[in-house]
Design a protein around this nucleic acid. Structure first.
Length: 614
RNA sequence: GGCCCCGUAGUUCAACGGAUAGAAUGGAAGUUUCCUAAACUUUAGAUACAGGUUCGAUUCCUGUCGGGGCUACCA
């Protein structure tokens, strides 16, 4: 059904044109929900038109209000407060909206492809009419360390943004890019080869990614000792000492051998990475994250290297005397960027060039979205410029979805100081807290153990995901390990609870009762709380489009909270099943059902499940 | 040094340039013979500072102060 704000805006544009002859772009007309201290449903901000109409804002509002009543049957009455035109819609409009939405299990989601509005850059609106897919890359782990809280934010964001784009009608491919090669991988390999004594996940009982991570830490410790000794002995700077250290030399040698496909090195590499993937798979599964395709840097860096060499041949890049290859970016006022080292090995940028090409070849996407922390803003701006320099058509399709850091009270997480919050540990804690809270409330005494476990998982993950996704992706956020994540107030469990409450009512009503209720609420009056709830429900489809356009799950999280809060207020003031007036009871039952549907669909966009009872 | 981002109640988060800056949490005070009190109600409490643009600024511009990031032949 047509969105009412659009309808009003179009009508206003027409009125202004008829009265003054001025053309007004309907997109520029501001319609907002009326603040609750005033009477009305929607408010038109009249100030911008007052000049066109050569009237005071109040007069202009009155003029437009009068015409709107004639123009739109849905508008029942209006009131003017200063330059604000407050419109009240008919009760019939709200009831028709409810009735039409009731049977839509996909309520809030776009049907079919295309037609969404996206604002990739601030303030820029752009119609996206094509059927080309969106590729969303997220997670992008290194295979030398387990996943931590930073990765959780990344994964949840990427996954939710993918769902959002899909809900907005796009075809979406979720891809992971595993950084499975490079000097850092060689470090954990080397430590394992030197000190591991054949330890495996099976022999030690450790999760594979944890085991490999331990060797990475061990390498850094051993290197520290060597570097300190050398620094003392030769009076070198820390950086130089680290580079001079035999361990570092061995690691570089290992990387060189790896690039030569040395059998022994490759076999250790495969073995250890296999352990890590087993570990990652468990963590992803538990988080509820999945991918359509996984790229490996080890498969793409050579392609990147070829593209760079080709660029060099075409004279788009230049070579230094030592043989290293560079991109000249002086026209952008950026330092030259190294793309191939003198020894021919590639750097991060090189492989990103390769992956971009591969991804373009694989999907021909409209946009390639990279969910990567804002510390890499510079990297991506350089990547786009280098691809542009190389004449790649997809340079513009690259969109860096840059998100803020998760910080601890003491600052950012540092593995060297052991302040990293491990992803698996955190999920364990959330599960335990959910169980403890629920049992203290005595809500699950009659639950079988299996249902308890499912519920605590749902609630623990719900709390965690909501906690992270409710924050604007662009902003840094704070996590305090000393305080457990809340289950009361503006939280995931609060919204889940609201859903469970509604489901309980629906169960008591029964399917038949609900079916007949749909046919029988025409005459029911509309209370303030009920209307408030309907207004919020009506907003859902537009909110999904906006959230998709801004690639901001936070918009959905805040929406879901507002909706749940509004329902709880309604629920507190009104009885659904004990209401004596049948029409009113029917109406409330339907209202409850649509609310549950909207909560379910909103939370689904965040990757959060909702329980039937809790 | 240069470039970029961020400063909103004690704390954690909201607010397309629009009305009296919203929530949550913590503090204070209440609500349950009634569909789930993980709820609801009341209450005190904030736009770092100084200018500018505007009918209107938390939002845009300039400067100051404070925090973070980037400025790698790490990723």
């Amino acid at each position: 059904m047509l969105h009412i704000e659009t309808l009003i805006a179009t009508a206003v544009a027409k009125i202004v044109r008829e009265v003054s002859g001025e053309e007004v772009n309907p997109d520029s007309i501001v319609i907002q929900k009326t603040r609750k201290e005033f009477e009305g449903d929607f408010t038109l901000v009249v100030f911008p038109f007052a000049r066109f109409l050569r009237q005071s804002p109040e007069q202009a509002a009155d003029t437009i209000g009068k015409s709107l009543i004639c123009e739109l049957e849905l508008v029942e009455k209006y009131q003017v407060v200063k330059g604000f035109l407050n419109l009240t819609l008919t009760k019939g409009f709200w009831q028709v909206f409810l009735l039409q939405s009731l049977d839509d299990a996909q309520f809030g989601y776009q049907k079919g492809h295309g037609g969404m509005v996206v604002r990739p850059e601030e303030g820029k609106k752009e119609k996206m009419g094509t059927d080309r897919p969106m590729v969303v890359e997220f997670s992008s782990p290194n295979t030398n360390k387990p996943l931590h809280l930073g990765h959780i934010r990344n994964n949840l964001l990427g996954y939710s943004v993918s769902l959002l784009l899909e809900a907005a009608g796009k075809r979406v491919f979720k891809v992971n890019l595993v950084n499975d090669r490079g000097i850092h991988i060689c470090k954990s390999m080397l430590a394992w080869m030197l000190t591991g004594e054949g330890e495996t996940p099976e022999s030690s009982g450790k999760k594979g990614d944890k085991l490999v991570g331990d060797y990475y830490v061990r390498f850094e410790k051993m290197l520290r000792e060597e570097a300190d000794a050398i620094a003392n002995e030769k009076g070198l700077s820390d950086e130089d000492a680290r580079n001079e250290a035999p361990l570092m030399k061995q690691a570089r040698e290992l990387l060189r051998k790896w690039e030569e496909r040395d059998h022994e090195v490759i076999s250790v590499w495969k073995k250890m990475n296999g352990w890590v993937y087993d570990g990652f798979d468990k963590t992803y599964a538990r988080l509820g994250i999945d991918f359509d395709k996984t790229y490996y840097e080890s498969d793409t860096y050579l392609l990147g290297r070829d593209i760079v060499k080709e660029g060099l041949k075409q004279g788009l890049l230049y070579q230094k005397e030592d043989g290293s290859v560079w991109a000249d970016l002086t026209e952008h006022n950026i330092d030259p960027k190294l793309l191939l080292r003198a020894d021919g090995t590639s750097v991060y940028m090189t492989q990103d060039i390769g992956t971009a090409q591969l991804r373009y070849d694989d999907y021909g996407p409209e946009k390639m979205i990279y969910v990567v922390g804002n510390e890499q803003n510079h990297h991506f701006s350089v990547l786009k410029k280098v691809l542009d320099l190389l004449g790649k058509p997809y340079a513009d399709a690259i969109h860096h979805l840059s998100y803020g850091m998760v910080e601890l009270p003491a600052g950012r997480m540092k593995s060297r100081e052991g302040t990293v919050v491990d992803a698996d540990d955190l999920m364990d804690e959330m599960f335990a807290t959910a169980g403890k809270m629920t049992e203290e409330l005595g809500k699950t005494q009659d639950f079988p153990d299996e249902e308890k476990a499912v519920l605590y998982n749902t609630l623990g993950l719900g709390a965690l995901k909501y906690f992270i996704l409710k924050v604007d992706p662009k902003k840094n956020m704070l996590f305090n390990p000393e305080e457990s994540i809340d289950f009361n107030g503006n939280t995931g469990p609060f919204i889940q609870y609201t859903y469970a409450r509604i489901r309980s009512v629906m169960r008591k009503a029964g399917e038949e009762r609900f079916e007949s209720a749909k046919q029988g609420f025409a005459g029911a009056p509309l209370s303030e709380k009920e209307k408030q709830l309907l207004k919020i429900l009506h907003d859902f489809p537009a909110t999904v489009l906006e959230a998709a356009g801004e690639m901001s799950p936070a918009r959905i999280a805040n929406y879901a909270y507002e909706l749940a809060r509004s329902y709880n207020q309604f629920y507190h003031d009104h009885s659904v099943l004990n209401e004596p007036d049948l029409a009113v009871s029917n109406f409330r039952l339907c209202l409850s059902h649509l609310t549950a549907q909207a909560i379910h669909n909103a939370m689904a966009l965040l990757g959060i499940k909702v329980p039937e009872r809790m």
